[in-house]
Structures are given as C-alpha cells and as structure tokens.
C-alpha cells in the first residue's frame, strides 16, 4: 500500500524507545501494520537503542546477581508452553479495527451531532489514555479543533481532506499543538478515524465546546 502521510521521526524514535504513551502508541502501531517504510525506521531506532545500551557504561551488580538468575532458571519447567489461541479480529459493528486495539474496551457508537458518532476506547493498561473512534458522514466536517498536545489520527476507513492534503486508509495524521485544522470527509463514503491525544483536545466550534465537558476529551 502506498501511503502519503506518515509518523514523524521523533514519534517513531519514541515508539522504538518505549517512551510514547499507550494511546498514541496504539494509533502509531495501526499505521505501522500498513507501512513498511515506517517499520524500517522503527527498526533503525531500535538498533539505535541497541547502540545506546552497548555504549552505556556498566554499573556493578550485586555479587549474587548471576547466581540468582541461574537458580531461577533451575526452577523453570522445561515443558513447552501451550501455543496461543488464535486471535479474533477486533471489530465495531461489522467494521474491522486495527489489531493494536486488541484488549481494549471498544465503546458503542454514540450520536454526537448530525452525521457524527463517537466511541470511547478504554485502554486497560493506561486508564488515562485519551483514545476515541470517530465516524463522520460524507461531506461533513470533523469538529473544528486545536489541541493541547499532539494528536495522532489513523484512518480506519474512508478519507478526509484538510489543508495538508487528502488522508486515506492507513495514513497517519500527526498534528502538534500549534496546528489548527478542519478536516472535511470526502464525498461518497463515511470516514472512521482512530484518534489519540497526548493532551486534551481544544474544540473551537460551539458543538465542540459543548462536547468537551460531556466526553472529557
């Protein structure tokens, strides 16, 4: 698949370093599943982590450290572990969602305005994560908004266009706090986005300002 909108190198490095928050990491992972170019960069940044580790000066371990691990190994059973059960696809209604949402609580679609639905995603391993699915009808505008932190948006289905161009399935939109944009869903098909925010979203429209306290986003 040829994608046109990718994660920034800073984000890919944070993902590889393991310091990207759980919510954004889920969205970035959804993109990585479709983007070999970004996967290759993550590979580079993991190798960079290896180089950093290799160059980290040693700190002496406790004298029994090795013996302790060896005795843990002795206690290990050599029984092969059962193969993992086949994984069910993650879905909302009949729409297949990215595998990176596995284990998350997918909320039901809720009406939030004409032609607009939202589902909140619960991330069990990070209760503070701000992750939503948003479904917007063809030709409609997503709520006009800026953000307090960076916003990561992955296109699950359909497409939208904003001043940065057209975003299609598999693309990742990464918008930092200075950016105000007004995505309009392209004609012909509704658009479903998976979005995570590092900070809180800052809506500009009246509708958006109404929603903010209701949904706590």
């Amino acid at each position: 698949m040829t994608l046109h909108h990718h994660a920034t190198d800073e984000t890919l490095m944070r993902y590889a370093a393991g310091t990207l928050a759980a919510g954004p990491a889920i969205v970035v992972e959804a993109h990585l599943a479709h983007c070999s170019a970004c996967r290759a960069r993550v590979g580079d940044y993991e190798a960079l982590g290896g180089a950093v580790l290799e160059e980290t000066e040693p700190t002496q371990l406790s004298p029994t450290a090795l013996a302790d691990v060896l005795s843990l190994i002795d206690g290990e059973s050599s029984e092969p572990t059962a193969p993992p059960a086949p994984l069910e696809p993650v879905q909302i209604g009949r729409v297949r969602l990215p595998d990176s949402l596995r284990g998350c609580d997918i909320g039901r679609w809720r009406w939030i305005g004409p032609g607009m639905h939202m589902s909140r995603i619960g991330v069990p391993h990070d209760p503070d994560a701000n992750v939503i699915l948003i479904k917007v009808g063809p030709g409609r505008a997503l709520p006009d908004h800026g953000h307090v932190g960076t916003e990561f948006t992955y296109l699950v289905s359909g497409s939208f266009t904003d001043k940065f161009g057209q975003f299609k399935v598999g693309d990742l939109a990464e918008m930092d706090e200075d950016i105000e944009h007004q995505p309009i869903v392209d004609e012909g098909q509704e658009c479903i986005c998976l979005a995570a925010m590092e900070g809180k979203m800052r809506f500009n429209s009246f509708l958006g300002r109404m929603l903010q306290p209701i949904f706590g986003i």
Binding site: L53, T56, V69
Partner: peptide, 11 residues
Amino acid sequence: FRHFGPRLKTF
C-alpha cells in the same frame, strides 16, 4: 549476563 547485566543496570 556479564556483558549486558551491568549495562542494563545503568540503563
């Protein structure tokens, strides 16, 4: 272990 253990500790 001798190679990586002490580096991991600092890390």
